[in-house]
Design a protein around this nucleic acid. Structure first.
Length: 625
DNA sequence: GTAGGGTTAG
């Protein structure tokens, strides 16, 4: 797995030091420990304070290898001073405490301020407060060291210390330092990794499943895939017991966010025996197979399938999906036949829905409906709203809206109340045909049946109104959506932004682009591109440059074609300076102009006699080549 | 985090 974060050396270094032993990493580790210590000095546990206060000679303290978590980093200087003061205080006599003057027999020393005579904290035993009930004398005593999910570890000592006394300090997985990988506040995955490595340097310590799981996901989200790999390798050697679920979550995260190629899911699956020390469960097989099929890697899915001895209904359903996605409906129907003949893996609603969807996609609606009837008659399986939805969508996509509507009525008459999905699928069918009034009727029907339209239902109708040029009605609906407490997602906002843009209300669209992120809405590249494309197409370069600044500043780049159009448009109106600035901004996002755009840029700069800019451009051209 | 459904888009 590749890591594009530029932190390879650091990750590798940390991991390498762990491999070689803690002393190799001592020098750099101490530097990092310094930064942690400042943040954690006040959060030390009682047990740890006990350790520091416990009296250790200075030679040992200096020679001790720091554990680099901050809380146990040798004995800090402040701690030493504090301890010395404490020892001196114990040596003082009653007379010294009163006068602050040492007797003449004592060795000469630096004069110290006298300490006040301690006053009794408890009231006189003769008087008992009416608010305090004296506790019953109890024989119960707390154990000397609290030990909750934690361990006692011998302190790591340097080779110089000859006869190390067995002193222990306490660490718990619950402690903040240990759980840094789990803390939502630990946004920096590198820091989480550093803390993880630091703690693991303790002899005899082992991280647990939860810590590994949290760190794996955090690193994966940050695209630190080399570190993820290293962690997975390390898990094979850990003594603690791991579960499958975190590994499956990791595979799902990597593939769903396209952080890693599909092979990564298969590698994780194959690592299960070494890490979990068990054969992969049927659940793990199904999860991995499903990820591979969803990623379209049928070759890898088939490879995995060839090793599955007794596929259950779930695995077979995924195989049905595989064949449907690959367009081999014959093979999918053969799997259905096998399932019908099988007692251990019979077909179920999901088998039929998947197959019906595949048939609808191929336009074989008749076969899909036939299968639907077979499911009810032959296998005695009652359809649910989801199965009906496949049929509604199938009929809608063929423009047979009467049939789709009839399915909805059929559902009601057959004891299956339609849900929001069913209504919005039918609405979408009407919307695609431009029949917004019928769509509105379905929308009202949905509400009168007691269902609250969701963001998708609203978006479907808003989009339709905007496409028909009824932008104001669409915006009014968007307002109503907000008033009714239905939270709009980025798709809903994009539909509104597009409606505004098409309706010539670019200023309002740009206003939304500017303000929505401040209101907590996470826009995506499409949100900005919808407007940028429009501006470029209409030659509104002034606004386009402004929008470019906004989107580049937020980490979004325009579409490739729009970027070229923007540069050409700026050259056309002689805005050389803007064109150059825009070019550098786009280049930073990885944009390389078309050859024609290069030529135009160079030509315009030459005409303007801005030769120094020309040289810069040529330099960029050489780098790009 | 074992399997099936509806929305936008250069």
């Amino acid at each position: 797995m590749a890591d594009g974060t530029g932190n390879r050396a650091r990750e590798g270094g940390e991991y390498g030091r762990r491999q070689m032993g803690c002393r190799t990493g001592q020098a750099t580790g101490r530097e990092k420990a310094e930064s942690y210590r400042t943040g954690q000095a006040t959060g030390r546990s009682k047990a740890e304070r006990h350790h520091h206060e416990g009296g250790e000679d200075e030679r040992t303290a200096r020679g001790a290898t720091p554990c680099r978590t901050g809380g146990c980093d040798g004995v800090p200087e402040g701690g030493q001073r504090w301890r010395r003061g404490y020892e001196k205080k114990e040596e003082r006599t009653e007379g010294e405490r009163r006068t602050g003057i040492k007797p003449s027999s004592s060795p000469p020393s630096v004069s110290k301020p006298s300490l006040p005579v301690p006053r009794p904290i408890l009231p006189s035993p003769a008087w008992i407060s009416p608010f305090s009930i004296p506790p019953k004398p109890s024989t119960f005593t707390f154990p000397p060291v609290p030990c909750f999910q934690g361990f006692l570890f011998p302190r790591i000592r340097s080779a110089a210390s000859q006869s190390p006394p067995r002193r222990y300090f306490f660490f718990s997985h619950r402690r903040r330092g240990f759980c840094a990988a789990n803390q939502p506040s630990a946004q920096d995955p590198q820091r989480a990794l550093d803390v993880f490595n630091s703690v693991a340097l303790q002899r005899g310590f082992a991280h647990n499943d939860a810590t590994y799981s949290a760190l794996l996901l955090r690193l994966a989200r940050a695209r630190k895939l080399r570190a993820v790999d290293a962690l997975l390798r390390r898990m094979r050697r850990e003594p603690c017991r791991f579960h499958e679920a975190p590994l499956l979550s990791l595979a799902s995260l990597l593939l769903s966010r396209r952080l890693a190629p599909p092979e990564a899911a298969l590698r994780i699956f194959r690592s299960i025996p070494a890490i979990v020390r068990r054969r992969p469960s049927p659940r793990a097989v199904a999860a991995t197979l499903n990820l591979l099929v969803d990623a379209g890697r049928f070759d890898l899915a088939r490879d995995l399938l060839s090793r599955v001895e007794h596929p259950n209904s779930c695995v077979r359903n995924i195989v049905v999906k595989l064949h449907c996605k690959a367009g081999d409906l014959g093979a999918a129907l053969r799997v259905l036949d096998e399932m019908r003949a099988s007692k251990t893996a019979p077909p179920n609603l999901i088998t039929y829905s998947t197959l019906m969807k595949g048939l609808c996609k191929q336009g074989s609606l008749k076969d899909a409906f036939h299968l639907f009837e077979e499911m009810i008659d032959k296998d005695r399986i009652a359809p649910d709203p989801l199965t009906y939805n496949v049929l509604i969508d199938g009929f809608c996509r063929q423009g047979r809206l009467d049939k789709a509507s009839a399915v909805l009525s059929f559902m009601r008459n057959n004891n299956c109340e339609p849900n929001v999905f069913n209504y919005s699928t039918l609405m979408n069918g009407y919307c695609k045909e431009g029949k917004v009034e019928e769509a509105k009727k379905v929308f009202d029907e949905m509400r009168s049946s007691g269902l609250a339209p969701d963001a998708v239902s609203y978006t479907t109708l808003i989009g339709c109104l905007c496409r028909l040029g009824r932008v104001d009605e669409g915006i009014e609906l968007a307002r109503e959506m907000r008033e009714k407490g239905c939270k709009a997602d980025v798709v809903a906002y994009n539909v509104v932004i597009e409606g505004l843009t098409k309706g010539g209300r670019v200023g309002e669209a740009m206003g939304l682009l500017e303000s929505l992120p401040h209101e907590g809405v996470r826009l995506n590249a499409s949100s900005y591109r919808i407007v940028m494309n429009r501006l470029c197409a209409r030659g509104e370069m002034e606004r386009a440059v402004g929008l470019l600044g906004l989107m580049l500043g937020r980490g979004f780049a325009p579409h490739f074609a729009a970027s070229n159009e923007l540069l050409l448009g700026l050259c056309d109106i002689g805005r050389v300076a803007d064109a150059t600035v825009a070019f550098y901004g786009l280049a930073e996002m990885g944009f390389v102009p078309e050859i024609g755009t290069w030529a135009r840029l160079v030509e315009t700069v030459c005409k303007e006699r801005k030769l120094w800019k020309l040289f810069e451009l040529v330099d960029e051209l050489i780098v790009a080549e």
